[in-house]
Design a binder for these strands. Structure first.
Lengths: 142, 142
DNA sequence: ATCTACATTATAATAATTCTAAACTGTTGA
DNA sequence: TCAACAGTTTAGAATTATTATAATGTAGAT
């Protein structure tokens, strides 16, 4: 979703009713310079800061999943304890900083096209994703 | 860990006390032809089938994590709801069958070496992993 | 303005995992 | 051989993330 677009129209287009909770979520998610990586927890915190009224946890889950289904958000698998989401829904790869638990997008040019030689009969490839785990260089201490 | 090796010695080597639970777990995990992908739930089921006495869930968690820390098992991130583990601890990539929720190892030759052009200052690359999601080819129906 | 279908909400339920404290068991060394 | 200790196992409680439920609220069409 583009920055500062008409969120009400955007929501209507995909058949989501533009409620004030959803509009607020759009603003928090998409009105920013860079793409945004977050967990549900991050998002709930941000929302309760930026909203005067409180928003129900269930609504955040429901809306995030609705957005995911409509292609406004993408889920990223990094660790098994939490779900991470990404406002950049195009096919792209990630760095994951194991010190800070931060996700960083890769540009197209950062990683060469992946060439898959294996073929599984009767199955088609849905996605190919690379996760590069990085950590502080000087881990010798500790 | 090699198949049919002396698990008692292996466990001692890394400072784990060879209890009967741990030895049984080694047998279930490593005495097989191919590498084994599993969730904690899979493992608990298998163990309770193959053991006369029951094994505590907590013990399975503890031991899996002990094995992971010692490098006998590797955790794989696929979906955020469950932890998957792999008895193949070398660097390798995976196919994930979204229909059956099965993990399949890639051989060295299945995917070309990944070339990372990006560099994050002060951080070193710990791992580079590719996950290829596949699903049934004829998804037109339904 | 009213109606209706869909949304939101608080709360309960579930699922995966971790914690806890007591009982148990390999191992070490007398 | 056996006592003692440190590391393990255990059942169950606690925690955390997520989903389900059912009552209430609200956007949008008539």
């Amino acid at each position: 979703m583009p920055k500062n677009c008409n969120f009400i129209e955007k929501l209507r287009e995909v058949g989501l009713r533009p409620t004030k909770q959803r509009i607020k979520m759009c603003e928090v998610l998409y009105n920013r310079e860079k793409t945004f990586h977050f967990t549900i927890n991050d998002l709930v915190k941000l929302l309760s800061e930026k909203m005067n009224e409180k928003i129900s946890l269930a609504t955040v889950y429901n809306t995030v999943h609705a957005f995911e289904k409509k292609g406004y958000l993408k889920e990223i698998s990094i660790d098994s304890h939490k779900s991470y989401f990404d406002t950049n829904t195009s096919a792209h790869h990630h760095f994951f900083d194991e010190d800070t638990h931060e996700l960083i997008d890769c540009d197209e040019s950062d990683i060469d096209k992946i060439n898959i030689r294996k073929n599984i009969t009767g199955k088609k490839i849905n996605s190919v994703e690379v996760l590069v785990r990085v950590a502080s260089d000087n881990q010798t201490q500790k």
